[in-house]
């Protein structure tokens, strides 16, 4: 019998009760939340349970929601895939905006290593027990976490810059 979303949902609720919540199926992909404390246990369960068998971590990434209440400002999103039944799930963990910490999944999936480093690099989310949590794409001297929403891109239409230094001066413009 192929695994369907309801079976997964029932199994998870039976084991994790109120630690899992907000079940939804946007475009058929089972999506739910789990508390930061149980994330590692849940993904371990998804991977090793004889029925669930989610053997592949497709993707791991972060997201920032500055408008949420403080406990839910940062999030980590895991996409897992069961290749035997061809089912995917999306697991979300919401974290505290000031002190975001979640357990690392490197011991379960080696592929999480760099993806967690990338998420740390861009969002400043601390993955506990990660073997080597440091920046990966940005330079080591950087102090901010640039994918957070408080860092906007420069407005292309800003006028406070001296255009002469950027080669954007129309020919007939008075430079004084």
């Amino acid at each position: 019998m192929a695994l369907d979303n309801n079976t997964i949902k029932e199994l998870l609720i039976a084991k994790f009760a109120d630690k899992v919540s907000a079940f939804d199926e946007p475009w058929g992909l089972l999506t739910f939340e789990v508390t930061a404390g149980s994330a590692h246990e849940l993904i371990h369960f998804l991977k090793d349970d004889a029925t669930l068998r989610f053997n592949f971590m497709t993707d791991l990434c972060g997201a920032h929601f500055p408008e949420n209440e403080k406990e839910r400002q940062l999030s980590v999103i895991y996409h897992l895939h069961n290749w035997l039944d061809n089912v995917r799930v999306r697991v979300k963990v919401y974290l505290d905006g000031e002190n975001p910490e979640v357990d690392s999944m490197v011991d379960l999936f080696s592929s999480a290593n760099w993806q967690e480093r990338e998420t740390y690099d861009f969002y400043g989310i601390i993955f506990k027990n990660h073997p080597d949590l440091k920046r990966i794409l940005n330079m080591d001297e950087m102090v901010s976490f640039p994918m957070r929403k408080e860092f906007p891109l420069e407005d292309q239409g800003r006028t406070d810059k001296d255009d002469r230094y950027f080669g954007r001066v129309p020919l007939n413009q008075n430079l004084n």
Binding site: T58, D59, C61, A63, H64, I77, H79, S110, S111, N113, W114, Q115, E118
Partner: peptide, 24 residues
Amino acid sequence: YLVSNGSRVPYRLHFRRPCFIYYQ
């Protein structure tokens, strides 16, 4: 992975890049 909040730009867009993941 695209998160849309109804505006004309993505709220969050993540590219799952196969190279990045297997190069480790």
